[in-house]
Design a protein around this nucleic acid. Structure first.
Lengths: 255, 255
DNA sequence: ACAAAAGTGTTTTTTATACACCCATGC
DNA sequence: GCATGGGTGTATAAAAAACACTTTTGT
């Protein structure tokens, strides 16, 4: 309290070279950018949600859905807010991804680096493609992009997206995030396809994958069968939260 | 460019209720706080580096070594800067930990939440206890604290430290970070002790741990033996970066 | 009837786990 | 010589990997 200076005093002092130290601290606006993933099980594609920027800078360029943090709003609140503005979902997985804050990552920053800085706290989200309803307001572009067809994005968003993609690969291997992108009920080959599209082919074959997952015991047979074209109809399974509980916080390999 | 408004114009408009939207964005100072871990192999203790705060708020309380980010400085630069101010090290592991940015986490924020917000980007660092020389400037307190004897810290630093501790546990299991806290040369029981102190006793016994790590082939026998009191002298090993290369980016369980 | 996709079973190899035992040193 | 910690070996259980084979559907 005692050491606090009035804004006036500090402003006067800022101009004096001797007190340049006091002016060294950067001022920031904090943005939250969401990497939102989904999978189209029908077409076997990993999708990322992109929006067309409606304002400068980078007007008209595709970007991650983001927003600047408001007064009294937590980072996570901001992440949920943009998400809710862009998409209606029942199921949602969300966690913080990484913070990108180097100088010069936003063209709104002063070239001499003494203006306001823009920092981005990114979040990683998973939604179910079938349940996710995009909110198109007519003017703003919004679309699911297959991960390998993503165009050049605004700011450093390609880098952020790449970072999110890596996180997804990691999480798939040791946590049950797959069930946050798959529909509520799914076949074992849906699950297997998801793993191959995200992770590549370098893991156990379908037969072994299948036996292992069923032995773990947290997939419930719904009794319902579904037929997709030729071939034997597949059983629909459901992720069983309670049956999974004992595995929580325990290392568990899915691949 | 066209949509940009002069600071003057926006300032005038801010007072008008109709344009309250424009004033919704929070202004931030960004701090970087380091969770710095080390192990005292002699006493078998996991240590965290704490510093005594020299200014308000929380003057005189222990805290994580931190700083506010300066103009033109990246987050990582800031993390390295505080580290270099507090400690001299040869070996250093550093990675971003998490960003804590909820409103009200710093008492310098205005109670009405319309003043500047304080956000903390935390970094996770590992140093070698024997090589790390603390920089004591006479006035400021600085000390290694055993992780289970950490006092109440300033701000939300206990939470940040806890988060860092969790990260350490996770990383120990699947990455070679152990060799960033251990001395350059170490015995296999040093390594085993480290794992037990950080992870608890719930993993393979010394004999099996030993065989597995040697079989992996990235520990080089230095030929040197060291005797510590009674018992057979132990072989000193060294982590071999090149021999470890094939395991990089590959899932690998150490426990 | 046959291709296609789902699902089962069997064999082999590798890895984990438990634990008994030998080795080199200080006191 | 014996306690102490370091180091080796072996036997068993479990899990991973490879792959052959059966079942049920659409056409």
């Amino acid at each position: 309290m005692e050491t606090k200076q009035s804004p006036y005093t500090s402003k006067v002092k800022l101009s004096h070279p001797k007190f340049k130290e006091l002016s060294l601290l950067a001022d920031f606006k904090v943005g939250v950018d969401n990497v939102i993933f989904s999978v189209d099980t029908a077409q076997n594609r990993l999708l990322a949600l992109l929006v067309m920027r409606q304002e400068e800078p980078h007007l008209g360029q595709w970007s991650l859905p983001g927003t600047l943090v408001r007064h009294g709003e937590s980072l996570e609140d901001a992440a949920y807010r943009i998400l809710a503005e862009k998409i209606r979902v029942n199921n949602l997985y969300l966690e913080q991804l990484y913070t990108f804050g180097g100088p010069g990552r936003d063209p709104r920053e002063d070239p001499d680096s003494y203006g306001v800085r823009y920092l981005s706290v990114s979040y990683f989200a998973l939604v179910r493609y079938e349940e996710a309803e995009l909110i198109a307001d007519g003017v703003s572009g919004i679309a699911w992009y297959p991960i390998n067809q993503v165009p050049q994005l605004a700011f450093d968003h390609n880098q952020i997206l790449g970072y999110g993609h890596q996180r997804l690969r990691n999480k798939l291997e040791y946590s049950p995030v797959a069930f946050d992108v798959l529909p509520d009920v799914f076949t074992l080959s849906d699950l297997y396809q998801l793993y191959t599209t995200v992770l590549g082919e370098n893991f156990s074959d379908y037969s072994n994958f299948r036996t292992r997952l069923l032995k773990l015991g947290f997939l419930s047979d719904t009794g319902v069968k579904v037929s997709r074209g030729a071939g034997r109809p597949a059983t629909l399974y459901q992720f069983n939260e309670e049956a999974f509980a004992p595995f929580k916080n325990r290392p568990l390999v899915f691949i």
